[in-house]
Every structure is written in structure tokens, then in C-alpha cells.
Computed example of a mutant assay.
Amino acid sequence: MDPIDRRAFLRLAAYGGAVFSSALATGCAQGGAPAGDDFFFVQLSDVHWGYQGEANPDASGTLPRAIAAVNALPVAPDFIVFTGDLTHTTDDPRERRQRMARFQELAAGLKVRDIHYLAGEHDAALDAGKAFREFFGPTRYTFDHKGVHFIALDNVSDPRASLGEEQLQWLADDLGRQPADARIVVLTHRPLFDLYPSWDWATTDGARAIEILSTRANVTVFYGHIHQENHHRTGSVAHHSARSLIYPLPAPGSQPKRTPLAWDAAHPYAGLGFREVEAPHGAAAWDLEEYPLARA
């Protein structure tokens, strides 16, 4: 199926003719190496399994709802990424593992078998990622898909929100092995740039990572953590955050405290959703489609 026809079919079949789009086809600098075969993946983020509170009275229902929506897509994604905070934080190591085990059981219901998991600070900050690695594997890794090189970074296992010198060197070494015109996607939980540091929306040494990434022309970062869409550019590097699957958070600095937006019983699941990311064949840009969970 032609990429444009496939996207149109996907939108119409999923939403009965309504199109929900970020209207943003960006991410990689124009030019560079031609893309491989077109493909798309789904980004889900900030599930916070185990959360209980008034910000989402259906906290145990939103992940199954999202899984059902992804499974119902008329064209299956090539793979799925969860960009952190799979579970909600707990001081009890046993409860932490129970939440991860239950999350893992639910995620097994996804029809797509190729799933990449990232840790969030709720998963990893209290034990340096130990429990996360037991269930989901390394907190940083790379993989390649149809001509695109993916790099998953860990800016959460250190409670100081730091990548650390060793990981920065690992990033630089990995980039050094890629062609100069390689198409690079970075997956992370926290923003690498200083979005709003007083709300913990930053990575303490993220500027160092951006400096390394800026040596390449075709770099896009997809992240979570802030529970809302945000699109930003640092030089040639584009940064795109995803919505949460538990509760939305306010726009940066829009209120005194970083507290969840109130649940609206008249519009349940408002502000929640997931994202389709498409790499059209022969194009340097990424096409982003936002899927509100309320419509799922």
C-alpha cells in the first residue's frame, strides 16, 4: 500500500473519517540519506500502572483501553515503544516488582511482538533501575530498523536526572560508528533540553547530549515525562513529547505547581492518548499522528 494511501486508510478506518493530526511533518533536517522502506511505529508513554487517585478514577482501565486501540489499528505498526514510567513509584521493592509484572502481563496483550521499553524515574530512580532491568532488560540500548538508527537513553536511573559521563561517552562512540548522513532517532524519558527545570522537566547534563547529537544533521528525539505534547527544536535536533496514559499535566509554568489536571467526568480521558510516528519512504521528515484515548 502506498504510504499516503495507507495513512489515509488508517485515519478513516480508525476514526470514521475524522483526522486527528499534529499537523507536524518535521524532525529531521531536509536532505541527508534517503530513507529505507516506509514504516511506522507507535509511541505510548507514562502509564503509571499502580497509580490510585482522583486525577484518574479509571487508572486500571486506561492501559487496557490503549492496548485495545493499538490492536484495532487497521494496519499494524512495525513496533511499539513505551517511553518510560511504566509503573507508578513505590517505596516497597516487592510492590514495585508486582506492578511491573502486572504491566508486563497487560502489555503481552499487544498484537505487535516487537516492543521496546524505556524506564521512567517512577520505575528506576529508587533502585538505580534494578527492578526494571529484571523485567525489561537494559535501560539503554540501540537498534536499527529499515535504515534508521534508534538510541534509547537512560536519564532516570540516576535520581539526579543525569546521563553521566560513561553514558555520554557511550552515546558519542555509538554515533561515531554511524554514517555522517544517518537518520537517528533518540528515545528517552525526560526532555534532554531545559524545558522547565523547576518542575523537574530537564536532564541535568542534557546539554552535553544535545551537543553530541548536534554533530549529525538528521536527529529526532521522542520522549515522555511531561504528560502532554510539546514540540521543540535545539538547532538541528527536534524534540517531541507524547501524551500520557494516566493523567495530563499543565503546560510548563502555567500554574504555581506541577499538579495533574482535574479529571473531567463529562469528558473522560481528555488529554490522554498515544502517537503514531511514520517514516515515509524517500522523505527526511517524520509524520506524527496523535490519537486521543477518548476516541479509542
Score class of each variant (00 low, 15 high):
191 P>L: 08
66 A>S: 06
38 D>G: 14
203 T>I: 09
137 G>H: 07
29 A>R: 15
24 L>Q: 09
17 G>K: 06
231 H>V: 13
201 W>S: 02
295 R>P: 01
68 A>H: 06
271 G>V: 12
217 A>Q: 14
285 A>C: 02
250 P>A: 07
74 P>W: 05
137 G>S: 07
240 H>F: 15
116 H>Q: 13
5 D>N: 09
98 Q>A: 13
132 F>H: 06
61 G>H: 12
283 A>S: 10
153 L>K: 00
266 A>E: 05
44 L>N: 00
206 G>R: 06
8 A>K: 12
197 P>T: 10
178 Q>H: 12
257 K>I: 08
110 L>G: 01
85 D>H: 10
90 T>L: 12
248 P>S: 09
152 A>Y: 00
290 E>Y: 07
117 Y>C: 08
75 V>R: 09
224 G>T: 03
97 R>E: 15
212 I>A: 13
112 V>D: 01
129 G>E: 02
109 G>S: 11
133 R>T: 13
133 R>D: 00
158 D>H: 05
165 E>F: 08
40 F>E: 04
156 V>F: 03
193 F>Q: 08
167 Q>S: 02
20 F>P: 00
49 W>K: 07
296 A>K: 01
248 P>R: 08
236 S>I: 08
2 D>A: 13
147 G>K: 11
273 G>A: 03
256 P>T: 04
110 L>C: 07
13 A>I: 10
84 G>V: 10
161 A>K: 14
266 A>K: 12
275 R>N: 12
79 F>G: 07
196 Y>N: 04
292 P>S: 05
18 A>R: 14
295 R>M: 12
293 L>W: 00
153 L>Y: 00
39 F>A: 09
13 A>P: 02
82 F>H: 14
253 G>I: 14
227 H>N: 11
188 T>A: 15
204 T>G: 02
290 E>D: 06
35 A>H: 10
262 A>I: 08
194 D>E: 15
73 L>M: 13
215 T>Q: 15
50 G>T: 06
243 R>W: 05
27 G>Y: 04
109 G>T: 04
209 A>W: 01
284 A>W: 14
78 D>H: 09
237 V>L: 09
209 A>L: 05
35 A>Y: 02
38 D>W: 14
198 S>T: 12
226 I>N: 03
78 D>V: 04
180 A>W: 05
45 S>R: 05
161 A>N: 13
66 A>L: 10
190 R>F: 06
169 Q>C: 01
86 L>K: 11
43 Q>W: 03
188 T>P: 00
8 A>H: 07
